[in-house]
Structures are given as C-alpha cells and as structure tokens.
Design a protein around this nucleic acid. Structure first.
Length: 293
DNA sequence: CCGCGGGCCTGAGAGC
DNA sequence: TGCTCTCAGGCCCGCG
C-alpha cells in the first residue's frame, strides 16, 4: 500500500505517543515477516526510549536511547494502529492482550506513554530490523536510496541528473527508488499526469544533451512535490489497507486524477482525453494519451 | 553496471 | 452460495 505520503502520515500519527516514550514490553506474535526477526528483537527494544521517529523514503526510523535504530517498512499491506492501554493491564497479561488481537496483528509495542502500538500486515511483505545508528549509512536497505523528493536538494536538476542516459521509461525511472525515493505506482501515475508527460517517454528525454534539466524536468519535479504535499495533507490514500494510526481513512484517493480511473475523462483543463490503462514492467499504468506526451 | 520477470503472501472482487 | 482466477500500493533476487 504505502508510498511516501502514507508512511509520513503514519509517522506523524505515531510520533506523539512514541517519541520520548519507552518500550515497556514488546510482543512478537509472528516473527516471519519479510525476513525472520532476530531472536533478541524484543530484548533489544524493551527498556529503551524512542528519542525520535523519522522517515527515509518509505521506511520509518525510530532512534533509540541504546544507540540502535529500529527500521520499519510497511510492505504492501502493513499498518500501525494506536490504542490507549488499559491501566489495569499488566505487560504479562497475555490472555487479556491476545483476546483483543485481530488477525495479522504481528507485533505489539506497549509504550510507557500508555499507548499500545500494533503492527498489522496481512501479506507480511513488511519488515523490521534493528541496526546500530553508526552503521546506518552502510545499511543495505537504505544505502542505495535516491534523494528525498520533499528535501531541499531535490528539484529538476537532480531529477535530470538521475535520468541522464536512462533508456528506460519515465514510469519505471520514477518508481526506481535509486533515482528518487518514496514514489510508488500511484504517485508516479499522478505526478506524470500533472506534468503532462507520457509514462512511456524515455527517461533520458527530460534532460538536454548536457544533462541539464529541460522544461519537462521542471514540470515533473514540481508535479512530484505538489502531489506528495497534497497527499500528506490529506492523510494519504486509502485503497484497501492504508489507515491513519487512529484507524480513520486517508482522503487522497478522492483526488486521484488518473489512478484506477480507466475510461474516465482526463481532468486536465480543456483536455478531451480519457484515462487509459496500460501495463508497464508488469504493473498498471494509468495516463491520458491525449495531454500526456 | 543495467533492466526485466518471477516470487514472496493474503484477501478482495469478478466471473462462472 | 461457492469455487477459481486475477489482481493489488513493494521489494529482493537471479537472469541475460
């Protein structure tokens, strides 16, 4: 499910109950997520305080007082849900805790703030990993990620540089986390429609012969930033799995211009086209063949 | 190095 | 109602 706006929505939901709070008890109900959790997973968290909750691309990063960082990824179907812990509930009261657990609740953080934070992930493509902060820049999960599209450094210049010489399609290039980090199928489609660029266009064509950004690269960089900012403001997109941490749905799916709108009129002003669906690299692409060129 | 296709999982929805 | 098939927002890996 979750692309950058959904992960950022989750981060903003969790930060108030996790930052400054201590892991009082960590329940691992299933350890076979994308990879097996290490045996000492709970032990490395329990008793430690979360000093900050950040995000890199689609990863959540919890800084711990131990000097470790807890890396969390939601995969396709992961979500976090917050609840206020019953005061009477002791950490060892498994019967009580289990009785409340829903299907696919794999990991439960009992925080000293009184919050219970539950990670639910039906497809188990999500993952968690603990690494020393000193090793973070060598971390394989993060090492090859491209620039943050909402970071100050990101713009047409970086985008053009990343696409330089790329024989692949713009669609594939934007979804490649090594070029820009955080976009997935939805926001790639949405950004390309806003920028009026065809997803089939060669990535290299947004730069001139000197690898300088052209006007297309400017439009695309602006569109990427705009769609992400708007989506975060809306709490992300809820198609099936994404929820805010309080359980409410995001709203941005109502603002999709092309995603999952095959056959509908293109919303671009004065464009008479209809949204078309094609398959690129095995995934659906939605775009307007009339205004996206 | 690069790009592509397959695979990992489960659930929802369509079609019969 | 129930079965089977397809597809889904991510990412890693092996292949050519």
């Amino acid at each position: 499910m979750p692309e950058l706006p959904e992960v950022e929505t989750v981060r903003r939901g969790l930060a108030p109950v996790m930052e400054g709070a201590r892991f009082r008890k960590v329940e691992v109900r299933r350890h076979d997520l994308r990879w097996r959790l290490p045996k000492d997973f709970a032990a490395r968290l329990e008793g430690k305080t979360v000093t900050g909750l950040g995000r890199r691309a689609k990863y959540l990063l919890a800084d711990l007082s131990s000097g470790d960082v807890l890396i969390m990824h939601l995969g396709m179907s992961g979500s976090f849900r917050m609840a206020q812990e019953d005061r009477e509930t002791t950490p060892g009261a498994y019967h009580h805790e289990r009785s409340k657990a829903e299907a696919h609740d794999h990991i439960v953080f009992h925080m000293s703030s009184g919050a219970r934070v539950t990670f639910n992930d039906p497809r188990r493509f999500g993952c968690m990993k603990i690494v020393p902060r000193a090793d973070l820049d060598r971390e394989p999960l993060l090492r090859s990620l491209g620039p943050e599209p909402l970071g100050n450094a990101f713009g047409a210049e970086l985008l053009a540089k990343a696409c330089r010489g790329k024989k692949t399609s713009l669609k594939a290039a934007l979804g490649d986390q090594r070029l820009v980090a955080g976009l997935g199928n939805i926001y790639v489609c949405e950004a390309l429609n806003r920028a009026r660029l065809s997803p089939r266009r060669l990535a290299s064509t947004i730069a001139d012969k000197m690898s300088r950004p052209n006007e297309k690269a400017e439009r695309l960089a602006d569109a990427i930033k705009a769609v992400l900012v708007e989506a975060i403001k809306a709490g992300g997109s809820s198609l099936r799995d994404h929820r805010r941490t309080d359980g409410t749905l995001g709203d941005f799916q109502h603002s999709f211009r092309v995603y999952d709108r095959e056959g509908e009129p293109c919303p671009t002003r004065a464009c008479k086209g209809r949204v078309r669906r094609i398959v690129q690299a095995g995934r659906s692409t939605f775009y307007c063949p009339v205004c996206q060129t």
